[in-house]
Design a protein around this nucleic acid. Structure first.
Lengths: 149, 149
DNA sequence: CTTGACCCTCCAATCATGGGAAGGTGCAGA
DNA sequence: TCTGCACCTTCCCATGATTGGAGGGTCAAG
């Protein structure tokens, strides 16, 4: 099995297969006499594991840990679970940030008539101190200033 | 106002202030005789606009468009609105992907006893064809294979 | 033997950001 | 005035995951 077939079998691009090998995430593939990389079924299984972890948003370093645990029969499932749950918390934090951005933007867009007139609450919101004033009465909060007397 | 003050006033790091100038997102700051960059209130207002747009997840190219619209009195608010709404849709797509990852991972973690035993449904899920089988009966779908008949 | 589809390595770019070196500037205090 | 420190300048490099391309070798079918 050449690298192109491995790519199709795993859903990982040829470029990334070589990259994962280069950074040591997976062990170097065997080589044919021609110099071509040769992949076994076992290699493919490992790479599929990698792709699925990547699809779940794990970073390469975390995938390396997961691979270690996966290939180490004596691991404790608690280790895996805590790694997975820590990752869930990180994903949830990212989702929370996205939610906030979406809410603010929708709020701004909602107040924009969206015609050919030039005045636009969205731009005004971006110029204002608080792009989402309805969220809280933060106007009195001292904003950072450079010319403090 | 030197670059350090501008950084404090806008919440943009010194490094990024120079970078935004270099890539042409904002016009080059004036220079003092010493070569130091000098920022006016107007510059600060522009940079604050940039930072807020960045906080809303806009990319630099999009911020450039927003800046154009902001500084162009004859723009139509519809242009701004469509740009903002397109961005909202993109953010929502990213949130949808996050939701999916979180759901899958929580599903896997839920079935993991998380003790010191080595068998772990999370790792099994990552090795399996479908890491979240409960989601649908996809097992019969022909998965990509390299060794067709 | 040619052709086209593969494969190889090496280098570069992306995007937004941070780190650091080497050297100049400005200001306060001894 | 000298010294020290905080600040500024430019230039180069690194990150993380991924893609692109150049320049060249390999393989299989025609």
């Amino acid at each position: 099995m050449n690298i192109g077939d491995a790519s199709k079998a795993t859903g990982i691009s040829v470029k990334m297969l070589r990259y994962y090998e280069e950074i040591g995430l997976v062990r170097p593939a065997l080589r044919a006499y021609s110099g071509y990389r040769v992949y076994s079924e076992q290699n493919i299984a490992t790479l599929r594991f990698v792709r699925r972890a990547r699809d779940l948003g794990f970073q390469v370093k975390q995938i390396a840990s997961l691979l270690d645990l996966w290939q180490n029969g004596s691991r404790a499932s608690a280790d895996v679970k805590s790694l997975a749950l820590a990752h869930v918390r990180e994903l949830e934090e990212r989702r929370r940030q996205l939610d906030e951005m979406i809410a603010t933007l929708e709020h701004l867009a909602h107040h924009c008539h969206g015609d050919d007139r030039p005045d636009c609450p969205i731009l005004q919101g971006l110029s204002a101190d608080d792009p989402h004033p309805s969220r809280a009465a933060r106007r009195k909060a001292p904003r950072p200033t450079f010319a403090a007397p």
